Deep mutational scan, measured.
Amino acid sequence: CHSECLGNCSQPDDPTKCVACRNFYLDGRCVETCPPPYYHFQDWRCVNFSFCQDLHHKCKNSRRQGCHQYVIHNNKCIPECPSGYTMNSSNLLCTPCLGPCPKVCHLLEGEKTIDSVTSAQELRGCTVINGSLIINIRGGNNLAAELEANLGLIEEISGYLKIRRSYALVSLSFFRKLRLIRGETLEIGNYSFYALDNQNLRQLWDWSKHNLTITQGKLFFHYNPKLCLSEIHKMEEVSGTKGRQERNDIALKTNGDQASCENELLKFSYIRTSFDKILLRWEPYWPPDFRDLLGFMLFYKEAPYQNVTEFDGQDACGSNSWTVVDIDPPLRSNDPKSQNHPGWLMRGLKPWTQYAIFVKTLVTFSDERRTYGAKSDIIYVQTDATNPSVPLDPISVSNSSSQIILKWKPPSDPNGNITHYLVFWERQAEDSELFELDYCLKGLKLPSRTWSPPFESEDSQKHNQSEYEDSAGECCSCPKTDSQILKELEESSFRKTFEDYLHNVVFVPRKT
């Protein structure tokens, strides 16, 4: 048989008469490798580009789960590009990614509803959504962080984005990388972005840091009482949809009607710091009717980097990364020049730590249904340095008659930039024990000054392991946590139920 035959053949030295091919099969003959313009397919066939392209389009058009959109890589027609490569849609070739590779997620039936953290986790790592997304989240724990972890990498949506009755959302900033909504599939009414009845939605994105392009379709905003109209108009300008909307697409009466839409800028007039305090004062603000001013709200939190936005980490279910302080308005003076500047002394802060701070007014709604208010920009203030805590785990070892090696770990709280350490030492008198000992005694162990690591005695271990207080009263049991108490109650309830079950099964009433 021919060298490319495997198993047997019907005619000697003829690659077209093989029972099976050793390498690849091409047009009725066995070959060692697939010549151009053919590609290896499933490690035994040679196919042309049209064959591989037909497989790709067949799966793409069917949208069946589990099928493969075949691509070409290293002269092979394979189910998908290997790690580190992405497909070129024009020629199906796998090309190296520039940075992290995109991950295209194809949605069944063309859309997916995100109504819980669990459903959001199914899209973790996706960068391109081939379909439409509907966000409908009523509640949950730590929602802002969970949504950002699972949806934060999405850069492109081919269909539309719909935010509907998501009472738990305060902001859409968890879509931190969303840059493009194509609108290839539109919501009824030709809408590519749809926001309806979101009672706590206050911000779409921080438009000073976020760009969003909507290729096709219109915007729809109705019944978002805490979303200011200025935020919607800003989205029109940034996304390129200005002029597409009709009169009733953006409701003037049901958007922002319960919001404090600040239209003035508060400026800080005085800032002073110490290692654990920050004193702030800002310019006074009074609405047209000074009785509408209820006070100020001061927001602050630790910020290692200057990239904080107002609604980071917030949701309507209680999660809030900001510390909020309510401040009463100052006494009002008739003389504008003698107006008191409101302020606040922030206490209990960490030394040498940068804080993000902003302040906003708290006002009631005027009778004319106009909203007044003022808010400052987010500023960054760093507390002063102070003395560091003591170095940890000092170790001293003498390696000769004239040297001592000293080692330690950095302090747990540096409280500033540590530039150097101060080492103090003092000579001590020799131990009298060394002169009084009889060095001729056998088995004498000389006193040693070398360091030995501390260890816990058996008594201390027994005390720590004991669940009861000892007789001397030195140790006591740790208080039980809520989960331990709940577990004990469940076990007790189970024992009672099981005992009742045994009584009912074992003891049967005697027939009379």
Rank of each mutant, 00 (worst) to 15 (best):
K103D: 05
C105Q: 00
L107G: 04
L108Y: 10
L108T: 14
G110F: 10
T113A: 07
S116L: 04
S116Y: 12
A120I: 06
Q121F: 11
Q121P: 04
L123S: 01
T127A: 04
G131Q: 01
R138E: 04
G139T: 03
G140K: 03
G140P: 13
N141I: 10
N141G: 11
N141D: 06
L143N: 03
A145W: 03
L147C: 03
L153V: 13
L153H: 10
L153P: 06
I154E: 00
E155R: 15
E155G: 09
E155P: 01
I157P: 00
S158R: 08
L161S: 00
K162Y: 12
S166M: 12
S171I: 02
S171K: 08
S171Q: 10
S171G: 13
S173D: 10
F174E: 00
F175E: 00
K177L: 05
K177P: 01
L180A: 10
L180D: 13
G183V: 00
G183A: 05
T185S: 12
T185C: 03
E187V: 07
I188F: 10
G189Y: 11
G189S: 08
N190Q: 13
Y191N: 04
F193H: 01
A195V: 11
D197R: 15
N198S: 05
N198C: 01
L201C: 03
L204G: 03
W205S: 01
D206F: 06
D206I: 04
K209D: 03
K209T: 12
H210V: 08
L212M: 12
G217S: 03
F220W: 08
H222K: 00
N224V: 01
K226H: 04
K226Y: 11
K226D: 14
K226F: 05
S230P: 15
K234A: 08
M235F: 04
V238L: 11
S239D: 02
G240S: 01
G240L: 15
T241M: 14
G243M: 04
R244F: 06
E246V: 12
D249S: 03
I250K: 04
L252H: 10
K253I: 12
T254P: 06
N255P: 05
G256V: 07
D257S: 02
A259R: 08
S260K: 04
E262G: 07
L265K: 14
L266D: 00
K267N: 11
S274C: 09
S274V: 03
F275M: 14
L279K: 15
R281A: 07
P284S: 03
P284F: 12
W286N: 11
D289S: 07
R291Q: 15
D292V: 03
G295R: 02
M297K: 13
E302I: 06
E302P: 08
F311H: 13
F311R: 11
F311W: 15
G313C: 04
C317E: 14
C317T: 03
G318R: 09
N320I: 05
W322V: 08
D326P: 06
D326K: 06
I327C: 05
I327T: 03
P329M: 09
L331P: 04
R332T: 12
R332N: 06
N334A: 08
N334H: 15
K337D: 15
K337Y: 13
Q339N: 15
N340H: 12
P342D: 06
G343N: 15
G343S: 07
L345K: 08
K350C: 13
K350T: 06
P351F: 06
W352E: 12
T353W: 02
Y355M: 02
F358M: 05
F358W: 04
F358T: 03
V359S: 01
V359E: 00
T361M: 09
L362H: 14
L362Y: 14
L362P: 02
T364L: 01
E368R: 15
S376W: 00
I379P: 00
I379V: 12
Y380I: 02
Y380T: 11
Q382I: 12
D384L: 12
N387H: 14
P388A: 06
P391Y: 04
D393S: 14
I395S: 06
I404S: 02
P410A: 15
